[in-house]
């Protein structure tokens, strides 16, 4: 099966500054992808290149087998059949909800248009607000109007530029689930841009982590978390601490906390000095363990505690512990490693 969207070595420059560098990825029909990165990493620019708002400095973009853009020529933005939800929603203040949503349906007849508008409003749950003006709606409602407006013309691809950044956390979580359900129910292929990994994990089938205009890794969220391709990704995604270790066999590393051997062989030579990423869930509290660590800090998270622990060497690690193990700061507790995935990088 060939991909719906394909970016091949896409680059983009503002003046001398390279904003996007040699970016390639593919997206299958019906998939939801997310470009994740801190602000200024170039993720929004990629979105704008796909939408057709920015010219390419290198590479090509293909959609459904058609070349959308290359350095030499490009399909005008309005002919790409790509919908977009803007960060500030960009609702038309002079039109009511119905008119906003029906805006891109100029080619339909009046009755078809009305039917489509009402259908989309139903999808986003705003039938009752068809006659309201944008300023009369809440932030979440405005967001859903923006989504409905972008969905109404049935775009081949939907782009969402930080769609939830203007909303509060609760609403953000709820809406991101809702939006994912809506997109999935419509079979919409979508790319979302965000700096919030929870949002990315909640929404996306594939996540692309970007850093300084480069795509660091393009993978499903699980893989990203457990098998980060670079030290940057490992650091950026999730929590954890790097602990020094020494390679003691083709599959084994010795840490302060003992030797660990993974199921899969790694590309290290024996004797190499490495840094091993320990996620909080890799460090398990075990009163029976001989290894102890001192509690430096703790954060209560309801079902569990996140402890910051200090090993004898002074090295700090994080541990996720069920919340009935309530230890005081300064107390020494027994721990042991329970690693499923060995994440190690050669020390520079």
């Amino acid at each position: 099966m060939s991909a719906l969207l394909e970016l091949q070595s896409v680059s983009q420059r503002y003046g001398d500054k390279t904003v996007v560098n040699d970016m390639s990825f593919a997206l299958q029909q019906g998939e939801i992808a997310c470009l994740l990165g801190s602000s200024g990493c170039g993720k929004t620019t990629v979105l704008r290149c796909i939408a057709g708002f920015e010219p390419l400095a290198g590479g090509e973009i293909h959609l459904a087998g058609r070349r959308l853009a290359s350095v030499a020529d490009s399909v005008p933005a309005h002919l790409r059949q790509i919908g977009m939800v803007f960060q500030d929603y960009a609702l038309f203040p002079h039109l009511n909800v119905q008119e906003n949503v029906g805006f891109g349906l100029g080619k339909l007849s009046r009755s078809e248009r009305e039917a489509r508008v009402m259908a989309v409003l139903e999808v986003v749950g705003l039938q009752a607000y068809a006659q309201a003006f944008p300023h009369e709606l809440s932030g979440g409602q405005q967001q859903r109007v923006a989504l409905a407006r972008a969905l109404a013309p049935k775009p081949q691809l939907l782009l969402l530029d930080e769609p939830f950044s203007n909303l509060d956390v609760d609403l953000r979580e709820r809406l991101s689930r809702e939006v994912r359900d809506i997109l999935k129910s419509q079979g919409t292929t979508a790319i979302l841009v965000t700096h919030d990994q929870h949002e990315a994990f909640a929404m996306a089938d594939k996540v692309g982590v970007m850093h300084q205009g480069q795509l660091q890794q393009w993978a499903p969220p699980y893989e990203l978390y457990h098998e980060p391709a670079s030290r940057y990704v490992a650091d950026f995604i999730g929590q954890g601490a790097f602990v020094p270790g020494r390679v003691t066999g083709p599959r084994c590393v010795t840490l302060e906390l003992g030797e660990y051997c993974s199921a899969v062989p790694r590309q290290f030579a024996e004797g190499d000095q490495v840094d091993v990423l320990l996620r909080p869930d890799d460090v398990v509290h075990d009163d029976a363990s001989l290894v102890t660590a001192k509690v430096l800090g703790k954060v209560f998270r309801g079902s569990e505690f996140l402890y910051t622990l200090q090993l004898d060497s002074g090295q700090q690690v994080l541990a996720q512990v069920p919340s009935h193990h309530n230890h005081a700061i300064g107390e020494a507790i027994g721990i042991r490693l329970e690693l499923d995935h060995l994440i190690a990088f050669r020390r520079a």
Binding site: A51, G52, F53, P76, A77, H78, L79, Q81, I82, G83, M84, F86, A90, F92, P93, H94, L95, F103, G104, G106, K107, R149, A150, P153, L159
Partner: peptide
């Protein structure tokens, strides 16, 4: 410029975007 982009994402050319979005706004 934003008005033009919204219009384009909804299938309006730049001149349509001017007449139907930028001007009314």
């Amino acid at each position: 410029r934003r008005a033009l982009e919204v219009g384009q994402s909804l299938g309006l050319s730049r001149s349509q975007g001017f007449w139907r979005i930028a001007l009314p706004m």
